[in-house]
Design a protein around this nucleic acid. Structure first.
Length: 103
DNA sequence: CTTATGACTATGA
DNA sequence: TTCATAGCCATAA
């Protein structure tokens, strides 16, 4: 299946621990800088980390997380990122300047 | 063909 | 800083 969604999974899977990528960043890597919304939609329809897709490492451009749609709960994603040494500027914003994913 | 929807992003107040 | 709105485009009906 070579749908846009599968493409997103492949990219998200390449995100190393301790790093976070924005939806727009992932969208650009798959060759679709305008489909940032579908990156999130793809992850929503994706098998999640059970298929090796660390959806918790994908955040907003501001570094805010998708609380409410996270797999375990609104605070779980933050806990996981903290467990991977991801810096937080506040309760709901990741320090993208220090943890932004580079390719 | 047109609508409706969406884990987004940019802009303005 | 937060909040609201518009624009974006793939998918489904």
């Amino acid at each position: 299946m070579d749908s846009f969604f599968e493409r997103v999974y492949e990219v998200v899977r390449q995100i190393p621990a301790g790093r976070v990528a924005s939806y727009g960043q992932v969208a650009r890597l798959v060759g679709a800088p305008r489909k940032a919304r579908f990156v999130g939609f793809a992850l929503h329809a994706s098998p999640g980390m059970e298929d090796g897709v660390p959806c918790h490492r994908v955040v907003f451009k501001d570094g805010s997380l998708a609380a409410g749609f996270a797999f375990g709960g609104p605070g779980i994603q933050k806990e996981m990122l903290l467990d991977e040494c991801v810096s937080f500027r506040d309760e709901a914003h990741v320090d993208m300047q220090d943890c932004s994913w580079e390719a």
